[in-house]
Amino acid sequence: MSSEIAEEYLEAVYDLTLDGGTAKTNDIAERMRVSPASATEMVQRLSAEGYLSYERYKGANLTDKGEKVARRIKRKHRLVERFLVDVLGAKREEFHDEACRLEHVISDESERRICQMTNNPRFCPDGEPIPECEDGDCSMCRDRPSLPLMEMREGQSGEITHLRCEDAGRIKRLISMGFVPGRSVTLEERVPLGGPLLVRLQECRVALAKEYAELVMVQTGPAPGRQPRSKEKASG
């Protein structure tokens, strides 16, 4: 079975069961533009593989395993849309179909990068919510974590991903000092007795109090000594 088709089915079930309920095979067939019989066959196969729980006459629901895959595909789809619109400037008519094709082929790594590039968006260009990545809170970046500057090791370098702060004054202070997403930072030294952190910010050297260092989120290089998380592949 082509994983692409399986993914499309799971996506369809995901959409149909968003409001609670169960996905009827007839509805699934309509969405996939196939006959009810082929839809039923496919649903049964997916159910046998543990992606769906299917009860005859009632319909299909996603299992935890199936939901994971569906959410990720949905997430890739909407992230790609965001990317096409925000970065490439695609037109409204274009982006949806293209995203439909790309969602199946894009790697998890690229998904992560797009997510970062578009600043972890929460909605797609049509205003539909983008499912959060698995444990919420960007956990799939765990093997290359985005951590507060405060928690970096001395000598460690990385790239600023975002500023974790709601206070406008502090944000402005940080950005005017050059703590802006996309720039690279190195934590050089920590001054003892609760002193500031000495940070190399590209060409400048800055002393930054820990209150500020907590707010600057940095993606460091792959941390040595930490095993990359074994990735769960989508079906197929």
Partner: peptide, 17 residues
């Protein structure tokens, strides 16, 4: 809402870019 990032951060990001 759309970007999950304050506009002033984004403006500065582009300037530094």
């Amino acid at each position: 809402q759309d970007h999950g990032e304050d506009i002033e951060v984004h403006i500065h990001r582009d300037r530094y870019g």
